[in-house]
Nucleic acid binder design. Structure first.
Lengths: 235, 235
DNA sequence: CGATGCGTTGATAACTTTCAAATTTAGTGG
DNA sequence: CCACTAAATTTGAAAGTTATCAACGCATCG
Protein backbone atom coordinates (compact mmCIF):
# COMPACT_ATOMS: atom_id res chain seq x y z
CA UNK A 1 0.00 0.00 0.00
CA UNK A 2 2.80 2.42 -0.86
CA UNK A 3 2.50 5.74 -2.60
CA UNK A 4 2.64 5.83 -6.33
CA UNK A 5 4.83 8.52 -7.89
CA UNK A 6 2.36 11.29 -8.70
CA UNK A 7 5.04 13.49 -10.17
CA UNK A 8 4.05 17.06 -10.68
CA UNK A 9 5.32 20.02 -12.53
CA UNK A 10 3.13 22.69 -11.10
CA UNK A 11 3.41 26.14 -12.63
CA UNK A 12 0.63 28.38 -11.37
CA UNK A 13 -1.21 31.06 -13.25
CA UNK A 14 -1.28 33.95 -10.87
CA UNK A 15 -3.84 36.32 -12.29
CA UNK A 16 -7.15 35.94 -14.07
CA UNK A 17 -7.26 37.79 -17.34
CA UNK A 18 -10.28 38.89 -19.28
CA UNK A 19 -10.84 36.74 -22.34
CA UNK A 20 -9.65 38.19 -25.62
CA UNK A 21 -13.10 37.54 -27.11
CA UNK A 22 -15.24 34.45 -26.65
CA UNK A 23 -14.61 33.37 -30.26
CA UNK A 24 -17.71 31.28 -30.72
CA UNK A 25 -17.21 27.80 -32.08
CA UNK A 26 -13.49 28.19 -31.68
CA UNK A 27 -13.22 24.79 -30.05
CA UNK A 28 -14.76 21.40 -29.84
CA UNK A 29 -17.30 21.89 -27.08
CA UNK A 30 -19.35 18.86 -26.06
CA UNK A 31 -22.38 18.48 -28.27
CA UNK A 32 -25.44 19.93 -26.55
CA UNK A 33 -25.03 22.41 -23.76
CA UNK A 34 -27.63 24.36 -21.93
CA UNK A 35 -28.12 27.99 -21.16
CA UNK A 36 -25.68 27.65 -18.25
CA UNK A 37 -22.75 26.54 -20.35
CA UNK A 38 -23.39 29.34 -22.84
CA UNK A 39 -23.64 31.91 -20.08
CA UNK A 40 -20.35 30.80 -18.62
CA UNK A 41 -18.73 31.14 -21.99
CA UNK A 42 -20.07 34.69 -22.25
CA UNK A 43 -19.22 35.80 -18.74
CA UNK A 44 -15.91 34.12 -18.18
CA UNK A 45 -12.29 34.56 -18.98
CA UNK A 46 -10.59 31.90 -21.06
CA UNK A 47 -7.34 30.71 -19.55
CA UNK A 48 -4.75 28.35 -20.92
CA UNK A 49 -3.09 25.76 -18.76
CA UNK A 50 -0.10 23.78 -19.95
CA UNK A 51 0.00 20.02 -19.49
CA UNK A 52 0.28 19.00 -15.85
CA UNK A 53 -0.16 22.51 -14.50
CA UNK A 54 -2.40 23.12 -11.52
CA UNK A 55 -5.74 24.87 -12.10
CA UNK A 56 -6.66 25.05 -8.45
CA UNK A 57 -5.54 23.32 -5.28
CA UNK A 58 -7.35 21.42 -2.58
CA UNK A 59 -8.33 23.67 0.29
CA UNK A 60 -8.08 26.82 -1.76
CA UNK A 61 -11.15 29.06 -1.63
CA UNK A 62 -13.68 27.89 -4.21
CA UNK A 63 -14.41 31.31 -5.66
CA UNK A 64 -14.46 30.25 -9.28
CA UNK A 65 -16.25 27.71 -11.40
CA UNK A 66 -14.60 26.24 -14.47
CA UNK A 67 -15.61 24.85 -17.81
CA UNK A 68 -13.35 22.92 -20.14
CA UNK A 69 -13.10 24.46 -23.60
CA UNK A 70 -10.37 22.25 -25.01
CA UNK A 71 -8.01 19.65 -23.64
CA UNK A 72 -8.88 17.73 -20.53
CA UNK A 73 -8.64 18.04 -16.79
CA UNK A 74 -8.35 15.72 -13.79
CA UNK A 75 -9.24 16.40 -10.19
CA UNK A 76 -7.43 14.55 -7.46
CA UNK A 77 -6.53 14.37 -3.84
CA UNK A 78 -3.36 13.11 -2.19
CA UNK A 79 -4.22 10.73 0.65
CA UNK A 80 -2.35 10.76 3.91
CA UNK A 81 -0.33 7.72 2.92
CA UNK A 82 0.83 9.42 -0.24
CA UNK A 83 -1.46 7.62 -2.66
CA UNK A 84 -3.25 9.78 -5.16
CA UNK A 85 -6.99 9.41 -5.70
CA UNK A 86 -8.33 10.85 -8.93
CA UNK A 87 -11.78 12.33 -8.43
CA UNK A 88 -12.79 12.65 -12.04
CA UNK A 89 -11.89 13.49 -15.60
CA UNK A 90 -13.37 16.49 -17.37
CA UNK A 91 -13.63 16.81 -21.12
CA UNK A 92 -14.55 19.76 -23.37
CA UNK A 93 -17.95 21.10 -22.33
CA UNK A 94 -17.73 19.71 -18.80
CA UNK A 95 -18.07 21.99 -15.80
CA UNK A 96 -15.87 21.40 -12.75
CA UNK A 97 -14.81 23.06 -9.54
CA UNK A 98 -18.34 23.90 -8.40
CA UNK A 99 -18.38 23.36 -4.65
CA UNK A 100 -20.89 23.51 -1.85
CA UNK A 101 -18.33 24.37 0.75
CA UNK A 102 -16.05 27.40 0.73
CA UNK A 103 -13.02 25.39 -0.25
CA UNK A 104 -12.19 23.00 -3.02
CA UNK A 105 -12.23 19.38 -1.92
CA UNK A 106 -9.95 18.32 -4.76
CA UNK A 107 -7.07 19.78 -6.69
CA UNK A 108 -7.39 20.17 -10.45
CA UNK A 109 -4.72 19.83 -13.13
CA UNK A 110 -4.64 19.98 -16.91
CA UNK A 111 -4.03 16.49 -18.31
CA UNK A 112 -3.09 17.92 -21.67
CA UNK A 113 -2.67 21.56 -22.62
CA UNK A 114 -6.11 22.93 -21.87
CA UNK A 115 -8.24 26.01 -22.34
CA UNK A 116 -10.70 26.63 -19.55
CA UNK A 117 -13.40 29.21 -19.03
CA UNK A 118 -13.24 30.66 -15.54
CA UNK A 119 -16.29 32.32 -13.97
CA UNK A 120 -16.68 33.84 -10.55
CA UNK A 121 -18.98 31.68 -8.51
CA UNK A 122 -20.72 34.74 -7.10
CA UNK A 123 -21.47 35.94 -10.63
CA UNK A 124 -23.00 32.57 -11.43
CA UNK A 125 -25.18 32.45 -8.33
CA UNK A 126 -26.23 36.04 -8.95
CA UNK A 127 -27.21 35.07 -12.46
CA UNK A 128 -29.13 32.11 -11.09
CA UNK A 129 -31.07 34.56 -8.92
CA UNK A 130 -32.18 36.52 -12.00
CA UNK A 131 -32.65 33.61 -14.35
CA UNK A 132 -34.54 30.66 -12.90
CA UNK A 133 -33.51 28.38 -15.75
CA UNK A 134 -29.87 28.86 -14.75
CA UNK A 135 -30.76 27.97 -11.18
CA UNK A 136 -32.46 24.81 -12.36
CA UNK A 137 -29.46 23.94 -14.46
CA UNK A 138 -27.09 24.39 -11.53
CA UNK A 139 -29.39 22.19 -9.49
CA UNK A 140 -29.49 19.56 -12.22
CA UNK A 141 -25.74 19.74 -12.56
CA UNK A 142 -25.43 18.94 -8.88
CA UNK A 143 -27.79 16.04 -9.25
CA UNK A 144 -25.73 14.66 -12.11
CA UNK A 145 -22.57 15.07 -10.09
CA UNK A 146 -24.11 13.16 -7.19
CA UNK A 147 -25.20 10.43 -9.55
CA UNK A 148 -21.76 10.28 -11.09
CA UNK A 149 -20.13 9.78 -7.69
CA UNK A 150 -22.72 7.16 -6.71
CA UNK A 151 -22.00 5.29 -9.92
CA UNK A 152 -18.36 5.32 -9.03
CA UNK A 153 -19.12 3.76 -5.67
CA UNK A 154 -20.87 0.98 -7.54
CA UNK A 155 -17.82 0.61 -9.78
CA UNK A 156 -15.35 0.48 -6.90
CA UNK A 157 -16.93 -2.49 -5.20
CA UNK A 158 -16.36 -4.61 -8.28
CA UNK A 159 -13.41 -6.59 -9.65
CA UNK A 160 -10.56 -5.07 -11.63
CA UNK A 161 -12.01 -6.34 -14.88
CA UNK A 162 -15.40 -4.85 -14.13
CA UNK A 163 -13.86 -1.53 -13.16
CA UNK A 164 -11.82 -1.25 -16.32
CA UNK A 165 -14.72 -2.34 -18.52
CA UNK A 166 -16.94 0.17 -16.76
CA UNK A 167 -14.38 2.89 -17.21
CA UNK A 168 -14.07 2.23 -20.93
CA UNK A 169 -17.84 2.31 -21.35
CA UNK A 170 -18.03 5.55 -19.42
CA UNK A 171 -15.36 7.14 -21.59
CA UNK A 172 -16.99 5.75 -24.71
CA UNK A 173 -20.25 7.41 -23.73
CA UNK A 174 -18.54 10.72 -23.18
CA UNK A 175 -15.86 10.86 -25.80
CA UNK A 176 -16.29 8.21 -28.41
CA UNK A 177 -15.96 8.71 -32.14
CA UNK A 178 -17.79 5.63 -33.27
CA UNK A 179 -16.10 2.75 -31.53
CA UNK A 180 -12.79 4.54 -31.10
CA UNK A 181 -12.05 6.01 -27.69
CA UNK A 182 -9.10 8.38 -27.38
CA UNK A 183 -7.93 8.41 -23.80
CA UNK A 184 -6.38 11.70 -22.79
CA UNK A 185 -5.05 10.31 -19.53
CA UNK A 186 -2.19 8.00 -18.61
CA UNK A 187 -2.43 4.50 -17.16
CA UNK A 188 -1.44 6.01 -13.83
CA UNK A 189 -4.40 8.39 -14.00
CA UNK A 190 -6.75 5.54 -14.81
CA UNK A 191 -5.30 3.42 -12.03
CA UNK A 192 -5.67 6.23 -9.48
CA UNK A 193 -9.23 6.78 -10.67
CA UNK A 194 -10.20 3.12 -10.35
CA UNK A 195 -8.25 2.35 -7.18
CA UNK A 196 -5.97 -0.12 -8.95
CA UNK A 197 -2.30 -0.22 -9.90
CA UNK A 198 -1.01 0.61 -13.36
CA UNK A 199 0.11 -2.98 -13.77
CA UNK A 200 -3.37 -4.29 -13.09
CA UNK A 201 -4.91 -1.76 -15.50
CA UNK A 202 -2.41 -2.72 -18.16
CA UNK A 203 -2.88 -6.45 -17.66
CA UNK A 204 -6.66 -6.07 -17.67
CA UNK A 205 -6.59 -4.17 -20.94
CA UNK A 206 -4.37 -6.85 -22.42
CA UNK A 207 -6.82 -9.43 -21.16
CA UNK A 208 -9.76 -7.62 -22.75
CA UNK A 209 -7.83 -7.46 -25.99
CA UNK A 210 -7.06 -11.17 -25.83
CA UNK A 211 -10.74 -11.79 -25.20
CA UNK A 212 -11.47 -9.79 -28.38
CA UNK A 213 -13.58 -7.24 -26.50
CA UNK A 214 -11.29 -4.36 -27.46
CA UNK A 215 -8.26 -3.48 -29.53
CA UNK A 216 -5.42 -1.30 -28.29
CA UNK A 217 -3.65 0.00 -31.41
CA UNK A 218 -1.73 2.56 -29.36
CA UNK A 219 -1.75 2.85 -25.60
CA UNK A 220 -4.01 5.90 -25.64
CA UNK A 221 -6.41 4.61 -28.27
CA UNK A 222 -8.97 1.92 -27.55
CA UNK A 223 -11.25 0.40 -30.15
CA UNK A 224 -14.38 -1.17 -28.77
CA UNK A 225 -14.85 -4.43 -30.61
CA UNK A 226 -17.59 -5.99 -28.57
CA UNK A 227 -19.66 -3.69 -26.46
CA UNK A 228 -22.04 -6.31 -25.25
CA UNK A 229 -19.10 -8.28 -23.87
CA UNK A 230 -17.94 -5.15 -22.08
CA UNK A 231 -21.42 -4.52 -20.79
CA UNK A 232 -21.54 -8.05 -19.51
CA UNK A 233 -18.20 -7.64 -17.75
CA UNK A 234 -19.38 -4.35 -16.36
CA UNK A 235 -22.07 -6.25 -14.49
CA UNK B 1 -18.54 -13.18 -7.05
CA UNK B 2 -21.83 -14.81 -6.20
CA UNK B 3 -24.89 -13.18 -4.69
CA UNK B 4 -25.15 -13.01 -0.96
CA UNK B 5 -28.50 -13.91 0.52
CA UNK B 6 -30.23 -10.54 0.95
CA UNK B 7 -33.31 -12.12 2.45
CA UNK B 8 -36.29 -9.87 2.64
CA UNK B 9 -39.62 -9.92 4.31
CA UNK B 10 -41.26 -7.06 2.62
CA UNK B 11 -44.61 -5.95 3.95
CA UNK B 12 -45.62 -2.62 2.46
CA UNK B 13 -47.52 0.12 4.13
CA UNK B 14 -50.09 1.10 1.58
CA UNK B 15 -51.47 4.39 2.76
CA UNK B 16 -50.02 7.44 4.43
CA UNK B 17 -51.86 8.39 7.58
CA UNK B 18 -51.87 11.74 9.27
CA UNK B 19 -49.78 11.68 12.43
CA UNK B 20 -51.73 11.37 15.68
CA UNK B 21 -50.01 14.53 16.93
CA UNK B 22 -46.39 15.43 16.53
CA UNK B 23 -45.76 14.77 20.24
CA UNK B 24 -42.72 16.94 20.68
CA UNK B 25 -39.71 15.33 22.27
CA UNK B 26 -41.39 11.97 22.05
CA UNK B 27 -38.25 10.38 20.68
CA UNK B 28 -34.51 10.56 20.60
CA UNK B 29 -33.91 12.89 17.68
CA UNK B 30 -30.31 13.63 16.79
CA UNK B 31 -28.96 16.48 18.87
CA UNK B 32 -29.15 19.73 16.91
CA UNK B 33 -31.43 19.98 13.93
CA UNK B 34 -32.24 22.94 11.82
CA UNK B 35 -35.43 24.58 10.78
CA UNK B 36 -35.82 21.99 8.04
CA UNK B 37 -35.92 19.01 10.37
CA UNK B 38 -38.42 20.74 12.59
CA UNK B 39 -40.60 21.68 9.69
CA UNK B 40 -40.65 18.13 8.46
CA UNK B 41 -41.69 16.95 11.88
CA UNK B 42 -44.56 19.46 11.82
CA UNK B 43 -45.73 18.81 8.32
CA UNK B 44 -45.27 15.13 8.03
CA UNK B 45 -47.02 11.95 8.99
CA UNK B 46 -45.23 9.57 11.32
CA UNK B 47 -45.22 6.02 10.04
CA UNK B 48 -43.98 2.87 11.69
CA UNK B 49 -42.04 0.26 9.79
CA UNK B 50 -41.30 -3.15 11.26
CA UNK B 51 -37.81 -4.57 11.05
CA UNK B 52 -36.79 -5.45 7.47
CA UNK B 53 -39.86 -3.91 5.88
CA UNK B 54 -39.52 -1.79 2.77
CA UNK B 55 -39.97 1.96 3.08
CA UNK B 56 -39.67 2.64 -0.61
CA UNK B 57 -38.30 0.79 -3.60
CA UNK B 58 -35.78 1.61 -6.25
CA UNK B 59 -37.41 3.13 -9.33
CA UNK B 60 -40.54 4.13 -7.47
CA UNK B 61 -41.54 7.77 -7.89
CA UNK B 62 -39.67 9.89 -5.36
CA UNK B 63 -42.66 11.88 -4.19
CA UNK B 64 -41.80 11.81 -0.50
CA UNK B 65 -38.89 12.73 1.67
CA UNK B 66 -38.22 10.88 4.92
CA UNK B 67 -36.72 11.57 8.28
CA UNK B 68 -35.81 8.94 10.84
CA UNK B 69 -37.47 9.47 14.20
CA UNK B 70 -36.45 6.26 15.90
CA UNK B 71 -34.80 3.05 14.80
CA UNK B 72 -32.55 2.98 11.78
CA UNK B 73 -32.76 2.61 8.03
CA UNK B 74 -30.58 1.31 5.23
CA UNK B 75 -30.74 2.15 1.55
CA UNK B 76 -29.54 -0.38 -0.98
CA UNK B 77 -29.53 -1.53 -4.54
CA UNK B 78 -29.39 -5.04 -5.96
CA UNK B 79 -26.75 -5.27 -8.66
CA UNK B 80 -27.30 -7.20 -11.84
CA UNK B 81 -25.18 -10.09 -10.57
CA UNK B 82 -27.34 -10.37 -7.47
CA UNK B 83 -24.97 -8.72 -5.03
CA UNK B 84 -26.45 -6.12 -2.77
CA UNK B 85 -24.81 -2.72 -2.40
CA UNK B 86 -25.82 -0.75 0.68
CA UNK B 87 -25.97 2.97 -0.07
CA UNK B 88 -26.07 4.27 3.45
CA UNK B 89 -27.31 3.97 7.00
CA UNK B 90 -29.67 6.51 8.49
CA UNK B 91 -30.04 7.14 12.21
CA UNK B 92 -32.56 9.19 14.21
CA UNK B 93 -32.57 12.74 12.92
CA UNK B 94 -31.21 11.80 9.51
CA UNK B 95 -33.09 12.73 6.35
CA UNK B 96 -33.19 10.27 3.46
CA UNK B 97 -34.98 9.63 0.20
CA UNK B 98 -34.44 13.14 -1.17
CA UNK B 99 -33.76 12.74 -4.87
CA UNK B 100 -32.87 14.93 -7.80
CA UNK B 101 -34.48 12.67 -10.28
CA UNK B 102 -38.12 11.62 -10.38
CA UNK B 103 -37.39 8.14 -9.12
CA UNK B 104 -35.55 6.72 -6.16
CA UNK B 105 -32.10 5.44 -7.03
CA UNK B 106 -32.05 3.12 -4.02
CA UNK B 107 -34.51 1.07 -2.05
CA UNK B 108 -34.93 1.75 1.66
CA UNK B 109 -35.67 -0.67 4.48
CA UNK B 110 -36.00 -0.44 8.23
CA UNK B 111 -33.02 -2.13 9.88
CA UNK B 112 -34.83 -2.28 13.20
CA UNK B 113 -38.43 -1.33 13.94
CA UNK B 114 -38.45 2.31 12.91
CA UNK B 115 -40.61 5.40 13.08
CA UNK B 116 -40.19 7.72 10.14
CA UNK B 117 -41.63 11.12 9.32
CA UNK B 118 -42.91 11.25 5.77
CA UNK B 119 -43.30 14.56 3.94
CA UNK B 120 -44.43 15.23 0.41
CA UNK B 121 -41.50 16.48 -1.60
CA UNK B 122 -43.68 19.05 -3.29
CA UNK B 123 -44.67 20.43 0.11
CA UNK B 124 -41.04 20.74 1.06
CA UNK B 125 -40.01 22.51 -2.12
CA UNK B 126 -43.02 24.80 -1.82
CA UNK B 127 -41.91 25.62 1.70
CA UNK B 128 -38.40 26.28 0.44
CA UNK B 129 -39.88 28.79 -1.98
CA UNK B 130 -41.49 30.72 0.87
CA UNK B 131 -38.71 30.32 3.41
CA UNK B 132 -35.23 30.95 2.06
CA UNK B 133 -33.60 29.38 5.12
CA UNK B 134 -35.28 26.07 4.24
CA UNK B 135 -33.96 26.37 0.73
CA UNK B 136 -30.47 26.90 2.03
CA UNK B 137 -30.83 23.93 4.33
CA UNK B 138 -31.93 21.69 1.49
CA UNK B 139 -28.97 22.93 -0.50
CA UNK B 140 -26.61 22.28 2.42
CA UNK B 141 -28.12 18.85 2.91
CA UNK B 142 -27.32 18.03 -0.69
CA UNK B 143 -23.79 19.25 -0.23
CA UNK B 144 -23.36 17.02 2.81
CA UNK B 145 -24.75 14.08 0.90
CA UNK B 146 -22.31 14.67 -1.91
CA UNK B 147 -19.47 14.89 0.57
CA UNK B 148 -20.61 11.71 2.25
CA UNK B 149 -20.57 9.79 -1.02
CA UNK B 150 -17.18 11.23 -1.95
CA UNK B 151 -15.81 10.12 1.40
CA UNK B 152 -17.10 6.67 0.67
CA UNK B 153 -15.23 6.59 -2.62
CA UNK B 154 -12.08 7.39 -0.66
CA UNK B 155 -12.92 4.56 1.73
CA UNK B 156 -13.55 2.02 -1.02
CA UNK B 157 -10.12 2.32 -2.61
CA UNK B 158 -8.49 1.24 0.63
CA UNK B 159 -7.75 -2.11 2.28
CA UNK B 160 -10.27 -4.08 4.29
CA UNK B 161 -8.70 -2.97 7.54
CA UNK B 162 -8.86 0.67 6.52
CA UNK B 163 -12.47 0.34 5.43
CA UNK B 164 -13.60 -1.26 8.65
CA UNK B 165 -11.63 1.22 10.77
CA UNK B 166 -13.10 4.07 8.77
CA UNK B 167 -16.58 2.66 9.15
CA UNK B 168 -16.23 2.38 12.92
CA UNK B 169 -14.98 5.96 13.16
CA UNK B 170 -17.88 7.15 11.00
CA UNK B 171 -20.39 5.37 13.19
CA UNK B 172 -18.64 6.60 16.33
CA UNK B 173 -19.00 10.15 15.09
CA UNK B 174 -22.68 9.69 14.40
CA UNK B 175 -23.89 7.41 17.14
CA UNK B 176 -21.34 7.05 19.90
CA UNK B 177 -22.11 7.18 23.59
CA UNK B 178 -18.61 7.87 24.83
CA UNK B 179 -16.46 5.15 23.35
CA UNK B 180 -19.29 2.68 22.97
CA UNK B 181 -20.78 2.28 19.51
CA UNK B 182 -24.03 0.35 19.19
CA UNK B 183 -24.32 -0.95 15.67
CA UNK B 184 -27.90 -1.30 14.52
CA UNK B 185 -26.92 -3.27 11.43
CA UNK B 186 -25.75 -6.81 10.80
CA UNK B 187 -22.34 -7.91 9.57
CA UNK B 188 -23.97 -8.54 6.20
CA UNK B 189 -25.14 -4.93 6.09
CA UNK B 190 -21.67 -3.69 6.95
CA UNK B 191 -20.08 -5.98 4.38
CA UNK B 192 -22.47 -4.80 1.66
CA UNK B 193 -21.76 -1.21 2.63
CA UNK B 194 -17.99 -1.62 2.48
CA UNK B 195 -17.84 -3.92 -0.51
CA UNK B 196 -16.41 -6.81 1.51
CA UNK B 197 -17.66 -10.22 2.60
CA UNK B 198 -19.04 -10.88 6.08
CA UNK B 199 -16.11 -13.17 6.76
CA UNK B 200 -13.61 -10.42 6.01
CA UNK B 201 -15.53 -7.95 8.16
CA UNK B 202 -15.64 -10.44 10.99
CA UNK B 203 -11.97 -11.32 10.73
CA UNK B 204 -10.97 -7.68 10.53
CA UNK B 205 -12.92 -6.86 13.68
CA UNK B 206 -11.27 -9.78 15.42
CA UNK B 207 -7.93 -8.48 14.24
CA UNK B 208 -8.63 -4.99 15.55
CA UNK B 209 -9.63 -6.51 18.86
CA UNK B 210 -6.43 -8.57 18.97
CA UNK B 211 -4.49 -5.39 18.22
CA UNK B 212 -6.25 -3.78 21.22
CA UNK B 213 -7.81 -1.05 19.09
CA UNK B 214 -11.36 -2.10 19.95
CA UNK B 215 -13.35 -4.49 22.12
CA UNK B 216 -16.35 -6.45 20.87
CA UNK B 217 -18.34 -7.43 23.97
CA UNK B 218 -21.32 -8.45 21.84
CA UNK B 219 -21.41 -8.57 18.09
CA UNK B 220 -23.46 -5.38 17.84
CA UNK B 221 -21.51 -3.43 20.44
CA UNK B 222 -18.04 -2.05 19.76
CA UNK B 223 -15.92 -0.29 22.36
CA UNK B 224 -13.27 1.99 20.92
CA UNK B 225 -10.14 1.39 22.96
CA UNK B 226 -7.63 3.28 20.88
CA UNK B 227 -8.98 5.88 18.53
CA UNK B 228 -5.60 7.11 17.38
CA UNK B 229 -4.75 3.57 16.27
CA UNK B 230 -8.03 3.46 14.34
CA UNK B 231 -7.31 6.85 12.83
CA UNK B 232 -3.92 5.64 11.78
CA UNK B 233 -5.42 2.55 10.17
CA UNK B 234 -8.02 4.73 8.51
CA UNK B 235 -5.19 6.46 6.63
C1' DC C 1 23.19 8.19 -28.99
C1' DG C 2 21.83 8.17 -23.85
C1' DA C 3 18.57 9.68 -20.66
C1' DT C 4 13.79 9.69 -19.40
C1' DG C 5 9.02 8.69 -19.07
C1' DC C 6 5.47 5.47 -20.03
C1' DG C 7 3.65 1.04 -20.74
C1' DT C 8 3.98 -3.97 -20.69
C1' DT C 9 5.22 -8.44 -18.91
C1' DG C 10 6.90 -11.90 -15.43
C1' DA C 11 7.50 -13.94 -10.79
C1' DT C 12 6.28 -13.75 -6.22
C1' DA C 13 3.95 -12.15 -2.11
C1' DA C 14 -0.03 -10.28 0.22
C1' DC C 15 -4.73 -9.87 0.66
C1' DT C 16 -9.55 -11.15 0.12
C1' DT C 17 -12.92 -14.41 -1.20
C1' DT C 18 -14.87 -18.89 -1.27
C1' DC C 19 -16.34 -23.05 0.73
C1' DA C 20 -17.05 -25.57 4.90
C1' DA C 21 -17.92 -26.18 9.59
C1' DA C 22 -18.17 -24.89 14.41
C1' DT C 23 -20.09 -21.73 17.71
C1' DT C 24 -22.92 -18.29 19.50
C1' DT C 25 -27.16 -15.68 19.58
C1' DA C 26 -32.02 -14.83 18.87
C1' DG C 27 -36.69 -16.17 18.24
C1' DT C 28 -40.61 -19.39 19.11
C1' DG C 29 -43.61 -22.56 21.17
C1' DG C 30 -44.48 -25.28 24.97
C1' DC D 1 -38.71 -19.99 31.94
C1' DC D 2 -36.69 -23.69 29.21
C1' DA D 3 -35.87 -26.24 25.08
C1' DC D 4 -35.45 -26.16 20.42
C1' DT D 5 -34.73 -24.39 15.84
C1' DA D 6 -33.20 -20.93 12.79
C1' DA D 7 -30.22 -17.21 11.99
C1' DA D 8 -26.01 -14.75 12.67
C1' DT D 9 -21.28 -14.73 13.56
C1' DT D 10 -16.85 -16.61 13.87
C1' DT D 11 -13.07 -19.53 12.48
C1' DG D 12 -10.28 -22.59 9.33
C1' DA D 13 -8.25 -24.10 4.92
C1' DA D 14 -7.75 -23.50 0.14
C1' DA D 15 -8.31 -20.88 -4.06
C1' DG D 16 -8.42 -16.67 -6.54
C1' DT D 17 -7.30 -11.89 -7.25
C1' DT D 18 -4.48 -7.90 -7.00
C1' DA D 19 -0.23 -5.66 -5.46
C1' DT D 20 4.61 -5.50 -5.32
C1' DC D 21 9.16 -5.85 -7.08
C1' DA D 22 11.90 -6.26 -11.06
C1' DA D 23 13.08 -6.21 -15.79
C1' DC D 24 12.33 -4.97 -20.45
C1' DG D 25 10.69 -2.46 -24.72
C1' DC D 26 9.50 1.60 -26.92
C1' DA D 27 9.13 6.26 -28.00
C1' DT D 28 10.56 11.10 -27.25
C1' DC D 29 13.84 14.59 -26.65
C1' DG D 30 18.04 16.85 -25.69
Amino acid sequence: MLPQPAIRTTPRNEALRRPMAPAAGQVAVAAVQGHLGQSMQMMGAVMSFPRNSEIFGENEPADYVYKVVSGSVRTYKILSDGRRQVGGFYLPGDIFGLEFADEHTFSAEAISDAKVVVVKRSALTALAGRDASIGRELFALTGRELRRVQDRVLLLVKSAQERVAGFLLEMAERAAAGNIVELPMSRQDIADYLGLTIETVSRTLTGLETAAAIEVPTSRRIVLRNRSALNRLNG
